[in-house]
Design a protein around this nucleic acid. Sequence first.
DNA 1: CGGACTTTTGAAGTAATTCAAGGGGAGTGG
DNA 2: CCACTCCCCTTGAATTACTTCAAAAGTCCG
Lengths: 231, 231
Amino acid sequence: MAESPDIDILARGELFRGVPVEVLRELHAASFRRKFPAGETVFQQEDAVTTFYIVVVGRLRVTQTTLDGQQIIIRYLGPGDVVGYAALTGAPAHPGAVTAVDDCHLIGMPAPMLRDIMSRNSRIAMNAVALMGERYQDLQLRLRELATEKVERRIAHTLLRLSQQAGRRTARGIEIAFPLSRQDLAEMTGTTLHTVSRTLSGWEARGLVDSGRRRVIIAKPEALAEVAEEV
Amino acid sequence: MAESPDIDILARGELFRGVPVEVLRELHAASFRRKFPAGETVFQQEDAVTTFYIVVVGRLRVTQTTLDGQQIIIRYLGPGDVVGYAALTGAPAHPGAVTAVDDCHLIGMPAPMLRDIMSRNSRIAMNAVALMGERYQDLQLRLRELATEKVERRIAHTLLRLSQQAGRRTARGIEIAFPLSRQDLAEMTGTTLHTVSRTLSGWEARGLVDSGRRRVIIAKPEALAEVAEEV
DNA sequence: CGGACTTTTGAAGTAATTCAAGGGGAGTGG
DNA sequence: CCACTCCCCTTGAATTACTTCAAAAGTCCG
């Protein structure tokens, strides 16, 4: 199994699960490692799709920007996640930008090569369909939240979701394990940094969270879940 | 080519494009036609995934409902569209409900059979990935609109999008070719029927639209596009 | 022509944005 | 090591877009 650490990483990711080792070897032969220091951009919105990545370590942020410069955060990516799903679907350009929020290590490979191997290997294609389905459901959920819930509940839901994906147990509670500013939370929940700040201050006073400069710790997850679900 | 009208319809849809005729015949052999009169439900949210459909004629609405009964419209489906993408991804349950808003004809087939054929036929799987990618991008766009735009612009964008999918040229302008109430528009744009009504009344006074009971005609698409894009 | 559903419009209320100003922490450079 | 600077965060006050509440008027169908 452990013929190469990278092959192991690929085999554990959602996309290449259950794929024969010889296919993984073929993929690995064409792949390369690349580091992105915090703040660096992997690709911009509208960039041509040339390369496909899998996250090894670190967090990345997927954003979309409007013509008038307003930005929203579509999602965060972490270890095992696919970066640049457009390489799977065959879209010519990236619909969003991806930026490292941490120092990141990615495994990259040429997009056409992935498409080629996928078309010869239905297991990968089936995995890709399942993966896209999950991401679609995520967005459906967020759309519903944005359409039906008030800001406070949206922020609560968002924090709880982030704590699932990237939570780290600490003495003071569950810490979101990457830098997360008020502005970031605002761009995830469709509000302003001011409102996020006020909301967190309120929770802080009630002891629900413990937050600071680009850092959020959920002190009482159950209580926050109540905020998220209350009518 | 025209060995059966249904095979033709399948071949033209996005999912089975470029698939060998013998595979289409196999699919067709297991398929059946089914009518859903206006208002009837194809499946409910959380229903087990048993059957997969392609729309032949008519329009259907995909909705999601929250625990406290609030509903949002995820999208509308029309001729050629896939109904119940969960059958593609392998999800056990439908994430949303589907209802006919018109009288509809669908071609159905058992979901496990589709998955089986897809796993043996990578072209279908590749098409499915592309299809999910498109739907994902749609939702991304709507999420961005909901997060960054004011209600009037959202309604304008929504109407323009519907006119693309289901617009019919008439003497008075482009008519949305299925019954569409103020409530429906509200559930698509994350607002209330009152606000939609006021907004349409305003546009009506300016001659942009011509609307009535569950009916919307866009009289001046260019002018509406300006409303949608203005800063 | 009755009754259900859809739409309209006014008035009051409110959640959240916008505008504005100041404060604090972390890192940098002298 | 201290001061400077850049971000990021906080908080008040004013404004506003939208919702909520309420009532009435159309419109379609049997």
